[in-house]
Write a protein that binds this DNA or RNA. Sequence first.
DNA 1: TTGCTCCTCACGTCACGTGAGGTGGC
DNA 2: TTGCTCCTCACGTCACGTGAGGTGGC
Lengths: 292, 292
Amino acid sequence: MRDPSLLQIGEFAHLGHVSIATLHHYDAYGLLKPAALDPQTGYRSYALAQLSQLNRILTLRDLGFSLDEIARLLHSDLAPDHLRTMLLRKQRALEEALLADELRLRQLATWVHHLEDEETMPAPTIRLQQVESMLIAGVREHLPHLREHGRLLTAVEAYLRQHGIPPSHTEVLILHSPHMVSDGHISIDLEVAMPLARMLPDQEAIHIRTLPGGLLASTVHTGVGIALGRAYQALHQWIDMQGYTLIGPVRQWQAHQSAGRELEPVVTEVQFPIAHRQAATRLCHPFQGKRG
Amino acid sequence: MRDPSLLQIGEFAHLGHVSIATLHHYDAYGLLKPAALDPQTGYRSYALAQLSQLNRILTLRDLGFSLDEIARLLHSDLAPDHLRTMLLRKQRALEEALLADELRLRQLATWVHHLEDEETMPAPTIRLQQVESMLIAGVREHLPHLREHGRLLTAVEAYLRQHGIPPSHTEVLILHSPHMVSDGHISIDLEVAMPLARMLPDQEAIHIRTLPGGLLASTVHTGVGIALGRAYQALHQWIDMQGYTLIGPVRQWQAHQSAGRELEPVVTEVQFPIAHRQAATRLCHPFQGKRG
DNA sequence: TTGCTCCTCACGTCACGTGAGGTGGC
DNA sequence: TTGCTCCTCACGTCACGTGAGGTGGC
């Protein structure tokens, strides 16, 4: 009854170093149909020549392609240009995954290092995040101290109220001069802003603009009366250790209990816009520089 | 009705930069329970202080820990030693993932390069695989040519038959001397073997041993009468380009149509046992060398 | 009759995303 | 009444792994 030029699924699976379940799956998926199917028993039979098909599939799988992508790659009516595009796209995706893994590894190393001193979880947990750009309405001014931003905030709120927008309980302080000393006495170039859902006209000191998105290192503090100096210091240290560099003004988001202004913020998130330092990544990924 | 010191789930999600679905999930999972639950509506309310809990969770998630691991890490009855162990284990896992990604990337680069010349998929697809060690019964001898291994094979088969083991249709040739020239005339140090399911005694020329497992670069050929020289050349080139080095004798698995010996093999898989070259990886992963 | 290999469902994995269909307070 | 925010199922994702329960040929 058995055709000697064909293999049973078990033999074929063994030769191909895969499980029978995998072959079942590829069959159901339409990726690799058995050469013959016994109508009585439903037994699958594979031809030896199909081993090379299987190996092509496994090679592509190992490279990180999904079964769907493999099916498209193997349908030979594929233009070589398209093939090249798919390979390059996968290459880029892999490069990104690789960078992300390197970061994780560096942060883990930092933690392990930290643990040797302190025996506890690192206090200010710092996170990386990608954020979208957003529309904001703000006032910018030189102030002697951060604490005195109340007046600016009041101005923004008045402006929003004037346009029928209910008071929000979050605002952002944008520190345009990270170093606060200027000619003799201390001063800080500060923008106080609130997010907008839709475009509004500029008015007097109020400017509407887009706060750019991108990569941020951030840390969150809850509770009142916390000195934020530590958070700033920790973030500076962190981006330095992780191989990043600051690329824009620091942002400090503040959330209040209610829209009432008298209270200090109860949650503060400090955000540093960052990018990787170029040199470090070049060194490790020779293939990256080859394209444009 | 609303407690002003608590946040609705939507506000909390926004402040934490996560989706409501994520908070639902963490609730169901027991990772982060809302501070209050309205018995009427089922509405969840979160305290501001929970933002720092959320951030700890997200930091750990970003580092690649599963929710299960995070739950264990946050249950504070965890010994610092155990914590360190978990961090180190994750670090090792990440290092491996990183190496694997680098390899994929290198192979992809090779392919793209290849495509620029040929416009087709690279012919001999080469795969990396981890294999288990296995028990084999073999005969080893110096032969003038690979073709003349038939006698050795017959000896192994006779031995197996003698122990009541049915004839297999796959055997492995192990090339102990990759360079085939010795003092004047050509000779090859060859072992011919077949896999064993259970231990058997040695006998005359037959030796039972464990064929070591490990990392292999391999390529498969189907059909009869194919010159394997190409495959060997391609493998040598490949492991060189991918930054590997050969660490043991090359293996050549052969499968036959039936257990009959007269026919040439119909499938041949050439396997090179390999390991990464040390220097290359050291350069890119400074943290790796820090541990024992 | 016992083993052996194979079969077809069906469910689990992991961390959510995405509707469907419904409710409570302004 | 219309919106809005929220609710609870339930199903989908991705590439299989893992039984459960059953069959055909030696």
